[in-house]
């Protein structure tokens, strides 16, 4: 894709000889010319990715039917899109059932045949699972940030503290989420003893596993950011006799922010990947469970539905990354101003 870009740019610039002719022609088509140019530029910028996607879809459609599994041929893009539509319809049907459920219930309560109102107990659809996963990763990510930033700042400011936690961080960092899962499950199961806790246990377990695995990029980046603060700034702070707290909020945090956000972006990416694996293994509600349930179903549509879920997981991961990237850009720009 980058090469496609490179093709366009030099052509536009490497035409000094024709500038005169271009200038002479320019007045007549000046306004539409720039518009067209801008459009052409966008079109060309989009062309390469679109071509890439089209080539991928073409290859997929051509090759998938050649792979025979015990569930039939591997589904192509058309079958996968069809299952995406079916999943959407299931969601709509479930919404209708939900509305019906509440209407019936209200009628029963009004008639006095039912004492208390229940929550709808239908099975979660694909769309519900997407939102569950997003909520879980959000909680895990917030918890990770809340833990990682203060520790990272402390490690960045105090070499002694940094030396103390460094070996622990290095050892904990590469641990797979799947290794944490049994420990977290047992601890959460033992600590949450209420019959009806505010947050479902499975939700808490997934979120804590996400936190444990996505903590490290933020922590390490924050520590680097805090440690690499300009010494002149610190000297100015000393001259102004800033207190420890003012030093932190006025000097260290602002200059470390871009690093912190870079770390958070990495953390969110890790968190999203970890979550799907954790949901699959622990059978906690979410996209991972959806994939596993469909695998277990082993019906003739299962593979297409799993592939659709894979596409959605990828798209959401991409969007999350984009959101963090723009936040990161925003913070970095503020810093230079």
């Amino acid at each position: 894709m980058a090469t496609a870009f490179a093709d366009i740019e030099p052509v536009g610039q490497a035409a000094p000889e024709t500038t005169m002719t271009a200038l002479r022609k320019a007045p007549a088509v000046a306004v539409p010319g720039t518009l067209q140019l801008a459009l052409a530029r966008h079109a060309r910028a989009l062309l390469a990715p679109l071509l890439g996607i089209a080539a991928f879809l073409g290859l997929w459609a051509a090759l998938a039917p050649m792979v025979q599994t015990s569930l039939g041929a591997l589904p192509g893009p058309v079958e996968v899109a069809a299952q995406g539509g079916a999943l959407f319809e299931e969601w709509q049907a479930s919404n209708e059932a939900k509305v019906q459920f509440y209407a019936d219930q209200d009628a029963r309560i009004a008639a006095g045949t039912q004492a208390a109102a229940f929550d709808y107990s239908g099975s979660p659809t694909f769309v519900d699972q997407v939102f569950t996963s997003l909520e879980t990763v959000a909680l895990g990510f917030v918890l990770a940030t809340i833990c990682a930033v203060p520790i990272g700042l402390a490690a960045g400011l105090s070499p002694l503290f940094n030396a103390a936690i460094n070996p622990l961080v290095q050892i904990m960092k590469p641990v797979s989420p799947l290794a944490w899962l049994p420990i977290v499950t047992m601890v959460v199961s033992a600590t949450v003893t209420s019959a009806d806790p505010v947050l479902a246990k499975s939700f808490v377990i997934s979120a804590i596993v996400v936190m444990l695995c996505s903590l490290w990029p933020t922590l390490i980046n924050t520590a680097i950011g805090a440690a690499s603060i300009d010494k002149d700034l610190l000297n100015v702070g000393r001259v102004l006799r800033l207190g420890a707290f003012q030093k932190l909020t006025r000097l260290v945090l602002p200059s470390a922010l871009p690093f912190i956000f870079t770390g958070m972006r990495l953390s969110l990416g890790v968190g999203w990947m970890v979550l799907i694996a954790a949901e699959m293994l622990a059978q906690n509600p979410g996209l991972g469970k959806f994939v596993w349930d469909e695998f277990q179903n082993g019906s003739s549509q299962s593979l297409a539905r799993i592939m659709f879920a894979v596409v959605v997981i990828g798209l959401i991961g991409f969007l999350l990354d984009r959101v963090m990237m723009s936040l990161q850009a925003l913070v970095s720009r503020n810093r230079t101003v």
């Binding site: 959460v188 600590t191 949450v192 003893t193 209420s194 019959a195 009806d196 806790p197 505010v198 808490v204």
Partner: peptide, 9 residues
């Protein structure tokens, strides 16, 4: 807080 949930029942 998590531990406390047990007593809310």
């Amino acid at each position: 807080a998590l531990a406390g949930c047990g007593k809310s029942d």
